[in-house]
Design a binder for these strands. Structure first.
Lengths: 241, 241
DNA sequence: GCAAAAGTGTTGTGTCTACACCCATGT
DNA sequence: ACATGGGTGTAGACACAACACTTTTGC
């Protein structure tokens, strides 16, 4: 009745916008199994730590932990044959690095576009896919953009980040309004100088909050609207003449 | 450098509407540790199985697996001190049982309201909370109601299920329209006889699909609307005179 | 002045919530 | 007839997407 030993590892799909594309941090395996293939950073769980502590510790070897703006658990990958040798269960994480953080990377480590992965080790390609999907979903109903963008940015720079992450066009106009309406952006007061071709200088913004916040909890079937006494005006906003 | 052994278990928070309330299936521990406290069903991962296979197997001991309409992974609970004795990591699942399934339960097992849990074992209360939260969120942007409701139901019966699960009032009118617009409901053609007080007989409905489907993927920043050639009429529906 | 880029005004559309009203049945 | 519960019609309110237009710069 004794089960064979099961080892436990944590793996992180660390995503960030680099060079206008959504990329993931991978390192090239030097040794078998899967030598020459690209793998997610991570490693064995140590004695005193829970999985989140572990993944943060292991990432510190690849990229300065302070550069990681957000970490969240994805799911467990537990196919008995997912790796050769003794059975290994993996808890996968999504990590996000803002584009102004440029950590010095080990020689075997590089940013690869998530939509053009090299040959990957084990089941790591599926983990990257689920990280990308999670990111795309959360960009639409949380403030998670803060974890991709630099500390200060113009709206059009932010727009490029969203385009790269979502994979479809995004209007700068609507992006600004959606984020502003939710009080996620605030102007710094500074402006960025225009390029050599001229143009109006762009105002700089920052995210008001750099921790995850759910801004659109309900798609439908919202709880009944209780009249909100904190809002001074009546139910209507402006009455046109 | 060798890590101490880590054991792996799966735990399931099986939720269902019973007696008008959202409840979770718990069994009362007979032995220490935590004897007399109520625990989630689950157990050790066996050799050849992944975590989802394992949780389905373990649930078969408590409730007929065919009665479980939906199973999904929640997250890993890995605090080193979450259980006494050798370290145990748990992968937690959400399971849902429709209210017309009434599995014969073992003597030590009972349905408990999720908002009035008895003394629970280990960290299981937190797992129940995250299961409840996941269910509430997904009811709003997926067709997950199918996993709580019986095979056929009236709108007002369905409404009571949503009220119990969400914890706030839901209008039958709007519930029907929201689900109908998304093509999640279809009429069976049958009607349910009215109660002894009279009233119009209610039409019976069923869910068109009994597997999980995301119906509201984007809160904002949707991909640009490509003109849909499959839809015959122009962009507008009806023109008023 | 002109091109380029940023940002605001405005309009159209969808769809959600709320509520009034009509429908079918038992007593 | 009338009470009871089921179901539809309709109106109001947002909020989003799209696009025209104004503003501010470099050349």
């Amino acid at each position: 009745m004794t089960s064979p030993p099961v080892l436990h590892e944590v793996l992180a799909a660390v995503l960030g916008i680099r060079d206008g594309r959504l990329r993931v941090l991978l390192w090239e395996r030097a040794l078998d199994p899967d030598a020459g293939r690209w793998a997610l950073p991570g490693g064995r769980l140590a004695a005193g730590e829970d999985v989140e502590t572990s993944v943060r510790r292991q990432l510190a070897e690849k990229v300065d932990v302070r550069e990681i703006a957000h970490v969240e658990q994805l799911s467990v990958f537990s196919d008995p044959d997912r790796t050769p040798g003794p059975r290994m269960i993996a808890t996968a994480f999504l990590g996000l690095v803002p584009s102004d953080a440029d950590p010095a990377l080990p020689a075997d480590t590089r940013w690869h576009p998530v939509d053009a992965l090299p040959a990957t080790a084990f089941d790591h390609a599926g983990i990257v896919d689920s990280a990308r999907d999670r990111l795309r979903a959360k960009l639409s109903y949380t403030n998670l953009g803060f974890a991709l963008a630099p500390a200060e940015f113009t709206i059009s720079a932010l727009r490029e980040h969203y385009v790269a992450a979502l994979g479809h066009s995004v209007s700068a106009t609507n992006l600004q309004r959606v984020l502003t309406r939710r009080d996620l952006l605030e102007p710094t007061g500074e402006t960025a100088p225009p390029g050599r071709a001229g143009g109006r200088p762009a105002a700089l913004f920052r995210f008001t909050d750099r921790t995850l916040r759910v801004t659109d909890a309900f798609a439908v079937l919202r709880p009944p609207a209780r009249p909100d006494p904190s809002r001074p005006g009546g139910s209507t906003g402006v009455v046109l003449p």
